[in-house]
Amino acid sequence: MIGNVGAVFLFEWKRSLTVPRMAWWLVLAGFPVFIIGLIRFSITAGDVNDAPPRELWIGFLFALVPMLVTMLGTMLWMTPAISAELERRSWVYLTVRPNGGTAVLLGKYLAAVTWVIPPVLLGLTCAVLIISPNAEEAEEIANARRHEPAQPFFINKHGQRQLAPSMAMRDLKPWQIWWAMARMVCLSAPAYAAVYLLLGTIMPRRGMVLAVGYSLLFELIISFVPAVINKLTVHHHLQALMLEWCELEIPPEFMSGAATLIGNSPTWHHIAILMLYPPILLAISVAVLRSSEFSSSAESDV
């Protein structure tokens, strides 16, 4: 069985080394870099005092890297895992092998996870390099350090009190953010891949519609609903880990709302749940697959 899964894994990886797939790999890596780069460029080009605070950079990176890009990458690989074989009419050739269907599911799952994580981490690395202070800002930070306790706040053009960019950058700790985001990617990619594989197995013909619906409804809306149901989403657990690993300070006025939304579970609890997602969802996918019928004559689910 392990050999079968390994064969599918290697076969899928080999097939992914084509120009279109590699172009898609680069798109995944480039997307967060492009968005973060645009924001950074707009700051540099505009008023440097409008630099977003550390929390906002973390928010951007979180939304882009372990969430959006990882979701998109795993969704496009995993949801059509079965439907692509059915449309190609190759499914029957795979399933008349010993545990063929199971091997295909697990092999494709491993291929997807290992294929998606590298470009996401590459994009994250580039994005963190972009938000890191440049030479001029580093000098400002050094100056600020020399004049401590200097006034860290100033009144911006809108008349609001704002943390000086040099201070914001000083607190940024880019590689701490990188390490936090990288760990989240390594947890979110396997979890999302397992979710999308299950959706694609339950409903191969309408898998993509189901996956997009799930992402919008559950991961983007229900995950923000302060109820027990939000604990079923991957987003909820990633959010809790982001607060913890990025050492985000929640303003006192938002503390009660955040506690309701995120809960008070310890970090290991969120990690454990995210690590349990893949084996549980993969087991369900295999069970669904083994009970499903696909006709080779029409190659449609009957």
């Binding site: 079968n4 076969f11 190609r88 029957v92 008349v96 004559s297």
Partner: peptide
């Protein structure tokens, strides 16, 4: 399935793969 060989009616190939790689892959699955 280890004792059975099946040749379905429909073609179900990966167009970018050679016959050799495809048959080899299916035997590994075997």
């Amino acid at each position: 399935f280890r004792r059975m060989g099946y040749c379905p009616g429909g073609e179900g190939f990966y167009s970018d793969v050679s016959a050799y790689d495809w048959v080899k892959y299916l035997q590994q699955l075997q």
